[in-house]
Design a protein around this nucleic acid. Structure first.
Lengths: 187, 187, 187, 187
DNA sequence: ACTTGCGGGACCACCCGTTCTT
DNA sequence: AAGAACGGGTGGTCCCGCAAGT
């Protein structure tokens, strides 16, 4: 059911993802929802998003820990995201983007979780950049922020075009930007 | 009414923007909507989006034509977007992003219009980059795509944080990336 | 416009016939309706119905005055109605039936006009029957009522079956009934 | 709720019967409708019509099986319909007539059900007529069709006049027609 | 004199997310 | 754990006036 929820949110956004269709897709009976998720739609979406986020974060961490350097790690990660997007027929993009765009006004814990997720991704990248010698810390942080931003935007462009080309362009240019910020690169 | 529509879509996304609230905000009676937009919500949102896009595009063109070079033009444009976002209490971001994220499955003309808009922005930037000497054309195109992507993602991050800091980081790093691609820069 | 109104009422009934579609079919501009028919939909439908009724009544009168005797006159009239129904793809039946069935509660002048129309048809038949020697007057009246009823019901059955067979059956049996009531027939 | 639906359709026709009023009359909460009738208005009307039809059919069968001969059976049945019509303040007529007249264009299963109902009534009458010796079969069928038609039309006339007199006239004349077709009658 | 454009609510059928009962 | 029931709300369309504008 969490998978169906995540998929439907990716397709239609938070408000467009109806409980009826979620239940129908996952074969869950109606009453079970409020048994397992007393908080209703909010809780369901929260948990579904957290689960998707966990997977994505794990992938990012794995690439950063692969010992191939930040340039190659980021490049591979972005291309992996592109592949996943294409494989899912351009459904599976970023799990937090639809929530952030649909729930601006609401002070829900959902939005806070999405914000924390985005912060966490930036932190992971920033630390990897710093470890690779990018300095000062503010530079590493700015580069991490830009990387996450370019990935989010790249997923948007790829979805709009139904093509992975925007993401390959982003992978190349962001890789170049990271390379240029590395200490050994000035030479 | 178009403004209210655009604003509400920014706040809640396509499916979360109800006609009732749009009408209530703009003081429009229900029957007028059907008169001016016989196509219903789809047409209304399309025209509202096109209007917002037009304004944004104009601003981008103006900055690119200001004769300050692509680095400074892009930097100023991103910071202008950040200012606008902050001034509107983090409501006014990109007009096409919510539509793209909410209407994946639908073959609506809306999605096509958004796709064309994104293409146009990339084209404007690519041409400016090429005119500044960035070559080959594919490089200029990739840089333009990455710039648009980073801006879209930056707006998302800024909204999630309710802060313009992500956009200033993006402005700086994207500026640096463009600078590094300019022909005169290597020396 | 009156024709379009009559046709649409035959297809969808009074409440199902929307002014929008009437105007669209007849090419009439919106404002003209209330110029020519200040009474709105009620008046429009009333006049359209009266016009259709006039045509039907004329046909009935012509058949009755053709000097072929009441049996043949009624038979020809019913078959003419069947032909018209078939020619119009089972749209053109009785112009008053839909109004009577749709406006039971309403005390509109429309219903009174329909009632008077039905009375008039019965009167025309009753007089023809009496002139042919059917007596007493109450018998002629009952036969006239039954003839109109069978025609109305026959149109209903024909429409439901999309076939003129029910009307030919009605024509035959009602003809036989009239024949049996004629004074010369017993012998 | 089914009763309220049937009654409202009799009063205003298919398009004139609003779900709101049906719910208000029957005291049903809004959401229950969609729960019990996922097919919406179409399914609701279909089931309501079928229920009304069942009752009417039962009454017809009972009269035909009463062993009083077809003439008396039909006479009693028509007069029973007249009584029911009067008792309900001229609301309860034929349950299928409004549907047939309101839904000409639609290929709904509703119309098919109405057609089958009308066929069934004709079949019941035809079989009774045949059992009573009316021959050939085509004659019995034509008489059955005419009987149903006269009843349908008689209900229309009675409603328009707000009087049962048309139905008593129909009962008498149709009875005479059946009598004339019986084999023992010529003698 | 006649048409147009627009405004105005009420209402449509449908479906939402939620709660209650078993 | 699950089906039935609940109202409020969805986007959409209804039939109808009132204003200018030919």
């Amino acid at each position: 059911m969490l998978e169906a929820t995540a998929a439907l949110i990716q397709e239609r956004g938070f408000h467009g993802a109806g409980l009826n269709e979620i239940l129908a897709r996952s074969g869950t009976p109606r009453g079970s929802l409020y048994h397992h998720f007393p908080g209703g739609k909010g809780q369901l979406v929260l948990e579904a998003t957290l689960r998707s986020v966990e997977v994505v974060t794990r992938v990012l961490e794995d690439h950063l820990a692969a010992g191939v350097g930040p340039v190659e790690a980021v490049r591979r990660y972005i291309l992996a995201a592109a592949e996943e997007l294409e494989r899912s027929n351009y459904i599976v993009g970023c799990p937090v983007a639809p929530v952030v765009l649909d729930l601006l006004a609401d002070p829900a814990p959902l939005v806070e979780a999405c914000r924390d997720t985005l912060r966490n991704w930036q932190r992971l990248l920033r630390d990897a950049f710093s470890r690779s010698g990018i300095a000062p810390p503010a530079r590493a942080a700015a580069l991490a922020t830009t990387t996450v931003a370019a990935l989010e935007g790249g997923l948007l462009l790829a979805r709009a075009e139904r093509s992975t080309l925007p993401l390959t362009a982003v992978a190349g240019e962001i890789g170049a930007a990271i390379q240029a910020a590395l200490p050994t690169s000035p030479r």
